[in-house]
Computed example of a mutant assay.
Amino acid sequence: MSTTTMALPGTAVKTKRIASIDLLRGTVMIIMALDHVRDYFNNSAYIFDPTDLSKTSVILFFTRWITHFCAPVFAFLAGTSAFISGTRKSKKELSFFLLTRGLWLVLLEFVLVTFEWTFNPAYNVFLVQVIWALGISMVFLAALVHLPWRAILLIGLVLVFGHNILDGVHMEGNILWAFLHDQRYFQLGHTGLFVGYPIIPWIGIMATGYCFGRLYTPQFDAARRRRTLIYLGLGAIALFIIIRAVNVYGDPNPWSAQKTPVFTFLSFLNVTKYPPSLLYVLVTLGPACLFLAFAEGPLNGFTKKVVTIGRVPMFFYIIHIAVIHALAFIGAEISGHSWRDMVLSNWVTGSPALQGYGFNLAIVYLVWIGVVVGLYPLCKWYDTYKSSHREKQWLSYL
């Protein structure tokens, strides 16, 4: 992530990386890997949803819940990156880049990422997930950047705050509506289509993140930016608490009293991701703003490594899925299943052949740590290669 310094007309604009943004992005990428390891390795993943309060445990719930931060932060910061990139480009150049990168991500989701999730060359199912949502949001942002900043912010906030009005609208068999606001699975002949990430709120999140990029322009010094980030973060968290307590709007699943106070608290936190509800966005992006507020400062040995991953998030995303799925082949064999059971025709936890497969959370955490540590040298290599070959424009698409 780069920021800019003021330059005279006709002179080159100097840029430097914003380490706090890379640190946040690297953190959520590492957390994201935990969720994907859980999908492929945890025995409970093949029996019940980890946020099902009638069956889950506190540690399993939070193993899943903490990963809620990943997708909204990634989409939000993608918008922020676009704004900062736009300070070095014309609107036309920025719009073209967003359009072409967005279309490239959609293609990547259908061709490569779906294959990595399934390892099935027959493509019995297409998984329409987060990379698709990012790509389509970039396509829309390519058009929105031509509008005034206030108009983009208004559109983004309306989509984020208002889309839950549509929660009661369901159109069985309507693929277009599924793409927009209603997670669905479709069987199209011999091929399945799982629409996991309806796009209306994701467009709003990225558009709002684009406007957020103004905080990283020269007119905002570090102290003013920190104060603003704290206000935004605390405000979002307070708004989450108020709206969630009222229990009328902001999430299709209201909270309720449970068997213990702890599980009642879990119910309060148990917000909806598909599509991301207003409350989901507030409870994830609020703490993210606080993270950014307190992350500006010198890096230590550990945070430098996290920043490295945050500088190459798409590379990490693509590599880590393939690695986790490949390790799951070994896991299947160890647990008495066949590696062939990991060649999938559906989402991994919805595969009947894997009933009874899996390991406890201790193994999940060990595999997760191993995957992250093992991928770090590759991320460092790619970051160095990318930094050393800025003339290669195709690198900006990965």
Rank of each mutant, 00 (worst) to 15 (best):
S2T: 10
M6W: 08
A12I: 02
A12T: 14
K16Q: 07
R17C: 04
R25H: 11
R25Y: 03
G26T: 09
M29T: 12
I30D: 04
Y46C: 00
I47Y: 00
I59K: 04
I59W: 03
I59G: 04
F61K: 03
F62Q: 09
G79N: 04
G86H: 11
K89N: 10
G102F: 03
T118D: 03
F119H: 09
N124E: 08
F126Y: 14
L127N: 00
I131M: 07
V139S: 03
F140D: 02
L144W: 06
H146W: 14
W149M: 06
G156M: 02
L159C: 00
V169Q: 04
L176P: 10
Q187I: 04
G196E: 08
G196L: 03
G204N: 14
A207Q: 02
L215S: 12
A223Y: 09
L229N: 07
L239W: 07
I243E: 06
V246C: 11
Y249Q: 02
Y249E: 14
N253W: 06
L279A: 04
V283G: 02
E296T: 15
G297A: 15
G301P: 07
V306M: 01
H320Y: 11
I324C: 12
H325E: 15
F329R: 08
H337G: 03
S351A: 14
S351R: 08
Q355F: 14
N360G: 15
Y365L: 04
Y365I: 13
G374R: 00
L375E: 00
L375R: 00
Y385I: 10
Y385R: 08
S387D: 15
Q393Y: 08
L398T: 06
